[in-house]
Design a binder for these strands. Structure first.
Lengths: 164, 164
DNA sequence: CCTTGACTGTTATGATATAACGTAAGATAG
DNA sequence: CTATCTTACGTTATATCATAACAGTCAAGG
């Protein structure tokens, strides 16, 4: 991969009323409420993810952090990203080996991700019903579900009409 | 990772009436029916996945293939594995960077995977309802869903009672 | 003060995956 | 039957993603 941030399109959740500033504000609020330390590296990483309007690879994040005077080695990025994911400020998109800001950091929610196979955009969709169905399937199998990764691949709104 | 096949437990689907031989037979039947070339490398890879009763990393597969006189380089394993996945004989488990035999190669189905975070076992669960819910969510977002990855993490039946 | 724990940074390495190219073997048209 | 086309296999080389292990920093509390 030499692409930076996957795509810059198809990002319904981050625009309009629920803008980037709002997401960041929600996140900061939540950090304060829960006594979580949103340190400079972590904050910058989160800001970056939000600004990216799409998923970023760890090395993309690292490059920017490094350019801004933070550490220059992979663990710096991975630590910040993993912390953000652990605490619900970001999500890991396994299909893309990438990370994306959580669109609704205020709520403790289950999300599904809609990944466009043309522009690599990532949209976070509410997945309450999906999770419920999955929980049922797990119960039926005698499996104690903890958390889940749900990633859909297809065409986003914007790319749907295009040739390839 | 230096582990070979993740776990050897918790594998309901491969035992009993629906045994390994049956899975292989279904797969071979389907290959013939659909005019797919289940070549020696591909067949051996599939047999290995079935025998593993759990997910295998590409390099684990490669090691075995190589020991059996097939190619010794990563692309050999990746090509076979990707082909098996593309044609519905196997699944890729992204959380584990691994692959597993499809438990029901005869049907064209949507599957969810239940991954134990203690023993790394992978169980394929029917995911009709889950997929239906996901499809709805996608439609609501104006997203044309093609296929999805659904991976649940938790405790399998066998590990559920244990300490850690 | 000085210990403790969380955080940041580093070096070094490990693990996963693909690009590009040459060869061989099977299918197909003439 | 043979020329040709396609698919698959194998290789070298390299790209990409991720973590282990350890050292320095700094704030909070005894």
């Amino acid at each position: 991969m030499s692409n930076h941030t996957h795509s810059a399109f198809c990002c319904p959740d981050h625009s309009g009323a629920q803008g980037a500033a709002s997401i960041l504000a929600q996140a900061e609020m939540r950090a304060r409420t829960m006594g979580l330390r949103l340190t400079p590296v972590r904050l910058r990483t989160l800001e970056m993810l939000i600004a990216a309007h799409g998923a970023m690879g760890a090395y993309d994040v690292l490059e920017q952090l490094s350019a801004e005077g933070y550490g220059t080695q992979p663990p710096v990025a991975y630590r910040a990203l993993n912390w953000l994911v652990e605490h619900g400020f970001a999500h890991r998109i396994r299909r893309l080996n990438a990370f994306t800001a959580c669109a609704h950091p205020a709520q403790d929610h289950a999300a599904a991700f809609l990944i466009c196979d043309r522009c690599d955009s990532v949209t976070e969709a509410p997945a309450g019903a999906v999770t419920a169905a999955l929980t049922e399937a797990a119960i039926a199998a005698g499996f104690a579900l903890d958390r889940a990764t749900i990633e859909a691949v297809g065409r986003c709104n914007t790319c749907a009409g295009h040739p390839s």
